[in-house]
Design a protein around this nucleic acid. Structure first.
Length: 790
DNA sequence: GAGTTTGAAACT
DNA sequence: CAGTTTCAAACTC
C-alpha cells in the first residue's frame, strides 16, 4: 500500500508537470502512467473488494481449484493482515472499525505492522483489509480476489471498516481526484464510525455477514474465516470499546498471530503448522468454556484479551462459529493431508498436520494412529471439509443433507488432491475432499453464519460435536453412523466401508472424493491415507489418465449457458447434470442407486436409464412436465400431502445429493430440481458436460451461469409443488447468493439476473438458511480443479 | 447388524 | 465398444 501511496504522490507531483503539453504527451506515451493507473486500479479493486471479497476470493481460489491456490489464498488472507498493517491502510481500517481501537492498533502497528494485521484478525475489519492487501502480494492470484472483491465491498461498506481501507485505496487510485476520494472516504469513515458508535449492533450484524462470507471463502482461507469469526465473537461479546482495549492488549496476541501468518504465507506446510497450532485449539475447545467465561468478562483486561487471541479460534469454534471453524479446519486437514502428501509433509501424518483444524483433537490422535496404522487418519470433520473437489463432490453427495454446505469445502479438498499434481483447491469445492478439494476448505458451513444457515450451523456444530464424539468412539461403524446422522448433515463427511479396493479405487467414496480416509471410515486395508500418499497419488494419476474426469464432480452444472441465449435452452442446459449419466434399470432413478438422483440432478440424454422416473428430471424430458409428472407419480406413492412432506424431506435429500456431489452438487441439485427434465443442450454427454464442467469449475462465470439457470429454473418450475420448490429455490438462490459476488450475480445475465434477483430476494426473504449454500456453490464451481490438474 | 439389491467401476 | 465381473453403497429386513 505504501508503494501505491508513494506512487500517487509521485503522480500528483507529476500531474503538476503534466500540465505541460510535452509532459502530457510523454505521460500518454509512457507506460508509467498506465502502470500507475493500473496499479492503483489493482489496489483499488483489492481494496474495494477487499473486505468482503476476501471471503469470496477464497472461493474463487477454490474455483481455480488448485489446492495450492486455495491455501495460498488462505495464506494470503492471513498474510494480508500483516501487509495491511504495513501499508497502514489497515491501520486506518482498524481505526475505522473500532474507532478507539484504531488508535491502539496504530500504535501497535507502528512497532509491528504484522502485529497489527494480526490484531486485526481478531477484529473483523482487520481481516478484510488483510485480504485485500494480501491479494496483491501473494496471491494475487487471482480468482480469489474477484470473489473477495465482490463480497468484501459490501461487507466493508456495511461494516464501515472498509471505508478506511477504501480511503487509501481511493487515494491511490485517483491520484488526481484523490482529494475528492479522500473526502468521500473520510465521509464514509466518519459515517461508518458514527454508525458504529451509534450501533455497535450494526457491526455485529455486519460482522456476522462478513463472517459468513468469509466462511464461504474459507475453503481457501479458512484462517481468514476463523479470524473473522473470532472477531465477530469478540464483537458480540464485547463492546467496541472493549474490543479496542483488547486490540491493544492483543498486541501480544498479534505477535502470536504473526507467527501463524508466517506459516500460512510460507505455504501449505505452514498452514498445516498453523492448523496444528490450531489443533491446540481443539484442546482449547475443551477449554472453550474457560475461554468463553473469560470472554464473558469484557472488562477482563489485557489478560483477557490475550486469552481471547490465543483461544479465539477455539472459542470461535466452540461457539456458534465452532462448527464452521471446525469444518474449515477439517477441510484444511484433508487438503493439507493431500497437499502434505504432495509436498510430503509427513509431519502432518504425525498427527498434527493431518489433524487439521476442525477435529484437531480427534484428528490428531487419529492421524497419529493412522500413521502408525494404515487405517484411516484424519477426523471425519476434516474429511468433510477437505474433500477434494472430485472427492469433495463425492463426499458432499454422500454427506448427507447437512453436508450440502460442506460441498464447498469439498472443493477445497479437491484442490488439495489436485495439489499433489500441483495444487488442489478442495475443496472444493466443495469443497470438502471435497477438501483436497475445496471441501476441505470450507464449506458449507460457511453459511452457518447467521442468516439462514442455522440449519447448516447446527449441522456443522453437530458434526463438530459428532466428530469429537466419534473420535472418541473407536468403532468405525458407529462413528460412521453418527457421522452420517449428524456429520453427514453438516459435513457430509465421507466415510467408506471398502474391503477389497483398499480405498484406492473409485469405488471408495473417500478416494473418489479426493479425501483421505479417516477414522469414521470402516474400510479395511486402507491405503487412502497420508502415509500412503505416494500410492494414492499414483493411483489417482492412473485413474485420471484413464478418465480425466474421474475425480471431477459427477454432477455438472451447465453453466456454460451463456447468459442469455435462449433462456430455455440455457435453462435446460443450465441445469446440472450428471457427468456421465446413469444406467439405472431397476431403481427407476428414484433411489440413490441412481447417481443422477443422488446428485439431485435430473436425468439427461446421456443417461441410459430404463423407466426413468427421476424426480429431478426425467431423461425424456420435459423438465417441467417431467417434474410435474414425476411429482404426480411420486406423489401417488406417498400421498400428495405426504408427498409434499416427502419433498420437503427430499429437498434435504436433494441437497444431500448435492452434497454428495461435492463439486457440482450444489449447483446441480438445485438446478436439477429445477431443470431436470430438460436434457442438456450441451449435448448431453460427458464431453459437453466436461467442457461445461470445466468451465464451471474454472471460471467464475460458472456462477453466473448458475444464476441464470436458477432463474430459468424458477421460471421453468411451474410447479414447485412437489419439489418443494421453496427448498429448491432456496438452494438455488443460495447458490446464487453465493455467487454473490454481488457483482457477478447482478452482472450475470441481465435477463437471468432479473429472474434470479427476484428469486434471490425471495430467498433472502425466505427464512431458509441456505444462503450459505450459495457460497458453497461458488466454491463448488471452483471445484473443477480436478480436471485441470491432471 | 446381516443380508440383499443395485449400479458404478473395473476388467476382459 | 460391449459384456462381464468386482465392488461398495444403498436399501431392506
Amino acid at each position: 500500500m505504501d508503494t501505491p501511496e508513494r506512487k500517487q504522490i509521485a503522480t500528483t507531483s507529476v500531474s503538476k508537470f503534466e500540465d505541460s503539453p510535452v509532459f502530457n504527451y510523454i505521460n500518454n506515451l509512457s507506460p508509467i502512467q498506465p502502470v500507475k493507473s493500473i496499479h492503483t486500479t489493482q489496489t483499488f479493486n483489492s481494496l474495494s473488494f477487499a473486505s468482503l471479497p476476501s471471503v469470496f476470493t477464497s472461493p474463487h481460489v477454490s474455483s481455480y481449484k488448485e489446492s495450492r491456490f486455495l491455501r495460498r489464498h488462505s495464506v494470503a488472507d492471513l498474510s494480508k493482515p500483516d501487509f495491511a498493517s504495513e501499508n497502514g491502510n489497515k491501520v486506518d481500517t482498524n481505526g475505522g472499525v473500532t474507532g478507539s481501537v484504531s488508535q491502539l492498533q496504530e500504535n501497535s502497528s507502528a512497532p509491528d505492522g504484522n502485529s497489527d494485521s494480526l490484531s486485526n484478525p481478531t477484529k473483523l475489519p482487520s481481516v478484510h483489509p488483510l485480504s485485500t492487501k494480501e491479494e496483491p502480494q501473494a496471491m494475487k492470484s487471482d480468482s480469489a480476489r474477484p470473489d473477495c472483491d465482490q463480497k468484501l465491498p459490501d461487507s466493508v461498506t456495511e461494516s464501515g471498516e472498509d471505508p478506511a481501507l477504501i480511503e487509501p485505496y481511493v487515494h491511490n487510485k485517483s491520484g488526481n481526484g484523490s482529494a475528492e476520494a479522500e473526502a468521500e472516504a473520510n465521509k464514509q469513515v466518519v459515517s461508518l464510525t458514527e454508525e458504529r458508535e451509534a450501533t455497535g449492533y450494526d457491526w455485529e450484524s455486519l460482522i456476522t455477514e462478513g463472517s459468513d462470507l468469509l466462511i464461504f471463502s474459507s475453503p481457501n482461507g479458512s484462517e481468514a474465516i476463523r479470524l473473522v469469526q473470532k472477531p465477530l465473537d469478540l464483537v458480540t461479546g464485547f463492546t467496541s470499546s472493549t474490543l479496542s482495549q483488547i486490540m491493544e492488549n492483543d498486541n501480544t496476541n498479534l505477535s502470536k498471530m504473526r507467527i501463524a501468518d508466517p506459516i500460512e504465507s510460507s505455504g501449505g506446510q505452514q498452514e498445516i503448522e498453523f492448523l496444528s497450532s490450531q489443533a491446540g485449539e481443539a484442546r482449547e475447545l475443551k477449554d472453550m468454556d474457560r475461554a468463553i467465561d473469560s470472554l464473558s468478562f469484557p472488562n477482563s483486561s489485557n489478560s483477557m484479551s490475550r486469552e481471547i487471541t490465543d483461544d479465539e479460534v477455539a472459542r470461535y469454534i466452540t461457539d456458534d462459529c465452532k462448527p464452521v471453524s471446525n469444518l474449515y479446519r477439517g477441510m484444511r486437514r484433508r487438503c493439507l493431508d493431500f497437499e502434505a502428501a504432495v509436498s510430503r509433509r509427513k509431519n502432518l501424518e504425525d498427527g498434527s498436520t493431518s489433524g487439521s483444524v476442525s477435529t484437531h483433537p480427534e484428528e490428531k490422535m487419529p492421524s497419529v494412529d493412522k500413521q502408525l496404522v494404515p487405517y484411516k487418519t484424519g477426523g471425519v470433520a476434516s474429511r468433510c471439509i477437505l474433500t477434494g473437489i472430485g472427492l469433495h463432490l463425492n463426499a458432499l453427495a454422500t454427506a448427507s443433507k447437512d453436508a450440502k454446505t460442506l460441498n464447498q469445502e469439498k472443493f477445497s479438498s479437491e484442490k488439495q488432491l489436485n495439489l499433489p499434481n500441483s495444487s488442489a483447491s478442495c475443496h472444493s469445492p466443495s469443497t470438502g475432499l471435497d477438501p483436497r478439494l475445496t471441501s476441505v476448505v470450507t464449506e458449507r458451513d460457511m453459511d452457518p453464519s447467521e442468516n439462514g444457515v442455522h440449519n447448516e450451523e447446527d449441522a456443522v456444530r453437530a458434526s463438530a460435536y459428532v466428530l469429537v464424539e466419534d473420535f472418541n468412539q473407536n468403532s468405525p461403524k458407529k462413528k460412521r453412523r453418527r457421522l452420517e446422522h449428524a456429520g453427514e448433515t453438516e459435513s457430509s463427511c465421507k466415510r467408506c466401508n471398502c474391503k477389497k479396493s483398499k480405498c484406492l479405487k473409485l469405488y471408495c467414496e473417500c478416494f473418489a472424493a479426493g479425501v483421505y480416509c479417516i477414522e469414521p471410515c470402516s474400510c479395511q486395508d486402507c491405503f487412502n491415507k497420508p502415509i500412503h500418499e505416494d500410492t494414492v497419488l499414483a493411483t489417482r494419476k492412473q485413474i485420471e489418465s484413464r478418465n480425466p474426469l474421474a475425480f471431477a464432480p459427477k454432477v455438472i452444472r451447465n453453466l456454460d449457458s451463456l447468459p442469455e441465449p435462449g433462456d430455455e435452452s440455457n435453462k435446460t442446459p443450465a441445469s446440472a447434470r450428471h457427468k456421465r449419466g446413469c444406467n439405472c434399470k431397476k431403481s427407476s432413478c428414484l433411489k440413490k442407486y441412481c447417481e443422477c438422483y443422488q446428485g439431485g440432478v435430473g436425468c439427461s440424454i446421456s443417461c441410459r436409464c430404463e423407466g426413468c422416473k427421476n424426480a429431478f428430471g426425467r431423461k425424456d424430458g420435459s423438465s417441467l412436465l417431467g417434474l410435474e409428472t414425476e411429482q404426480e407419480e411420486e406423489e401417488p406413492e406417498t400421498n400428495q400431502a405426504s408427498a409434499m412432506d416427502d419433498k420437503a424431506l427430499h429437498g434435504p435429500e436433494i441437497p444431500n445429493n448435492e452434497e454428495q456431489n461435492p463439486g457440482s452438487a450444489i449447483p446441480s441439485t438445485p438446478l436439477q430440481h429445477c431443470r431436470q427434465l430438460v436434457p442438456l443442450p450441451f449435448s448431453s454427454r460427458s464431453k459437453p458436460l466436461r467442457s461445461s464442467f470445466l468451465n464451471v469449475g474454472s471460471s467464475s462465470g460458472f456462477y453466473t451461469g448458475n444464476k441464470l439457470e436458477k432463474p430459468n429454473i424458477l421460471q421453468s418450475q411451474p410447479d414447485p409443488g412437489k419439489n418443494t420448490l421453496p427448498g429448491m429455490e432456496d438452494e438455488m438462490p443460495d447458490i446464487l447468493c453465493g455467487n454473490c459476488s454481488p457483482g457477478a450475480g447482478v452482472k450475470t445475465g441481465s435477463p437471468n439476473s432479473k429472474r434470479i434477483s427476484p428469486p434471490q430476494s425471495d430467498f433472502g426473504l425466505s427464512p431458509l438458511p441456505r444462503t450459505g449454500r450459495k457460497l458453497i456453490l461458488q466454491s463448488i464451481p471452483s471445484f473443477p480443479s480436478l480436471t485441470p490438474q491432471h
